[in-house]
Simulated scan of single mutants.
Amino acid sequence: MPAPIQQPSQLFTAMAATLRNSAGLNLQVGSHDDFTAPGAQAWALIDFDRNAPGARAADGRIAHVMSVSLQVIPAVSASAFAACDLIAVLKNLITDNRWGLPGDQCDLPMNIDGLPSVLIRADQPYKAWTLTFTQTLYLGPTLLDDPLGTPKFARTWEVSDIDDPDQYTALEA
């Protein structure tokens, strides 16, 4: 079982590792800060555009709806449509991919969309394509467990202070 996710940056790390290790892609993967100029390999630049709220998970974890963009800059020797073709391959890879993260903390990607774009570095424009999608992460502790790991409950009409954990009762099996 994969290790629990603690921070949104773990999505970046998991995506980068998956893209680097995908057979046949021949990609350099990083953030916009890692890119200097096109080279012999295509680049895939991962960026988080937004961390929006979402509905809590069934276990009570807080939802982080991550808007992700994956900008692809083709290799220098590539054809004009190389980035578009690579986006199609990446779209197939992204669909149904949780990047090796736990399924109860990482939903499948949604709203996958690819479109032409331009990357400008040091006044130099590079033709690129951008693949965008949202992926929901569920972070933090579950609401089903207290620090001892025993699920507890309290009825507001039976306790004097709903915020006092000593007034909660263990759930019966």
Rank of each mutant, 00 (worst) to 15 (best):
T95I: 02
A14P: 06
V118H: 02
I62M: 14
R61V: 09
A154N: 08
V76H: 06
D145P: 00
T13W: 05
T136D: 04
I162L: 14
P38G: 05
L171G: 00
I46G: 11
P116I: 03
D47R: 13
A173K: 11
V65W: 00
D33K: 04
L144A: 12
L144S: 10
C106H: 05
F133M: 03
S79N: 07
M1N: 12
W129S: 06
F12D: 13
L93I: 06
D145Y: 02
S67M: 05
T169W: 01
D34L: 06
A128G: 09
R56N: 10
F48E: 12
G60T: 10
S117Q: 11
L27Y: 04
R56K: 09
F81H: 11
D145A: 06
V68A: 08
A75R: 11
M15L: 14
W99G: 08
Q6T: 15
E172H: 04
Q167T: 05
A37L: 09
F81D: 14
K91S: 05
P8F: 02
D85L: 01
V65D: 11
T136F: 04
D33A: 13
A128T: 14
A55P: 08
I94K: 02
G54E: 12
D123A: 13
P125I: 11
G140Q: 07
P2M: 00
I94N: 01
N111W: 04
T13K: 12
R20L: 13
F81Y: 11
I5G: 10
P116W: 05
P102K: 07
I46N: 10
D123T: 09
E172A: 07
A16W: 01
A44Q: 06
T150C: 02
L11R: 04
D34M: 05
L119K: 06
P151Q: 03
T150E: 02
I46Y: 10
W157F: 11
M110D: 07
I5M: 15
A78C: 01
L25H: 06
S77H: 07
P4V: 14
D107C: 08
S69F: 02
Q135L: 07
E172F: 04
A173R: 14
R98T: 09
D47I: 00
L148F: 06
D49H: 13
L101H: 08
L139F: 07
S79D: 10
D47Q: 14
Q6W: 10
S77G: 01
T18V: 09
A88N: 09
L90M: 04
G140I: 08
G149S: 01
Q124I: 14
A80V: 04
P141Q: 15
P116K: 03
A44Y: 04
M15A: 14
G54V: 13
R98D: 01
G30C: 02
